[in-house]
Design a protein around this nucleic acid. Structure first.
Lengths: 154, 154
DNA sequence: ATCCATACTTGACTCGTTCAAGAGACGTGC
DNA sequence: GCACGTCTCTTGAACGAGTCAAGTATGGAT
């Protein structure tokens, strides 16, 4: 796996360094991990990396297209390895959990706005907001009827 | 207009205060304004309001459903008055400019994911990323051919 | 007019992220 | 295999949006 990442780095014209390999490993192990989680994951392998190194790696890898950075409203930045397949995300309003959702259209931009105000559009990002299974069962466990959605701010 | 906002506040069960009216006015005058811009707008009418008051107003009004808060990745929070019509946004990658885009579907959630991982979904938020007319003409003004999209990170 | 809950003021503080300067390591060319 | 130049990492400080907390003021019900 690290061998894989090694090749991937090289073919993107990036230097192969331990922190970068560890960052790729960490994101691979925990998709949608935020920077703190990535840092923690990296430090399992390299206990002394600086947080700055992780920030640098994450932005270098993101710029090279090896990572994708997502940031739902109210959340810190999160990263994932799955790039180039134009998929989307479901986000839990309660706990912030993120899950992948395949794009039913396929190619980016997967949607076309009716009025574009003269913008040149290259991507349509879709975020589904809702409640994850865990939080659903925790907030409405007593009734068998359809759960009432508690939308706190909308 | 302030008369309008007065009524709107009352019918939402919120106290009518000068800062709140001024916040509504400011957002009305500058749709998609960030907190700093709202604060500046409010201070035109009320030079001594605290930034905290503006934060409090914005969150109270958002919670009451009078304002909608949007936060594209990498941006600070922005606010708009247009609520309840399930519209979306186009965001310029270069300057951060935001414009409204009507939802072609109509009702929320306007899209349904193919796999929902057990999430109870109540909203689909769509953000179109691209380049606004001003930034387009600034980066590719010399050719008459189709502009090359410079996607800096993806 | 009085009173209480809510809203605002003031000022400090948190946390994710970025900046800057110098030490260290990757990899190319010899 | 070795030296060199450039990119990357370490260290430590700083920034800015947003939040917390305690006390004062004000809206609106009685």
């Amino acid at each position: 796996m690290t061998g894989q990442h090694d090749t991937v780095l090289r073919s993107s014209g990036l230097r192969v360094t331990k922190p970068r390999l560890a960052v790729l490993d960490a994101v691979h192990a925990h998709p949608h991990a935020d920077t703190a989680a990535v840092l923690a994951g990296v430090r399992l392998a390299l206990p002394n990396v600086s947080h700055q190194a992780v920030y640098d790696c994450l932005s270098a890898l993101t710029e090279a297209g090896l990572l994708r950075r997502i940031q739902p409203a109210g959340s810190v930045a999160r990263y994932e390895l799955r790039v180039g397949d134009n998929h989307h995300h479901v986000v839990c309003r309660t706990c912030g959990e993120v899950a992948d959702v395949d794009c039913s259209v396929g190619a980016a931009p997967c949607l076309t706005p009716t009025t574009d105000h003269g913008f040149v559009i290259d991507e349509a990002e879709v975020v589904y907001w809702g409640t994850c299974p865990t939080c659903s069962s925790r907030t409405a466990p007593l009734t068998q009827t359809a759960p009432i959605m508690k939308k706190e701010s909308r």
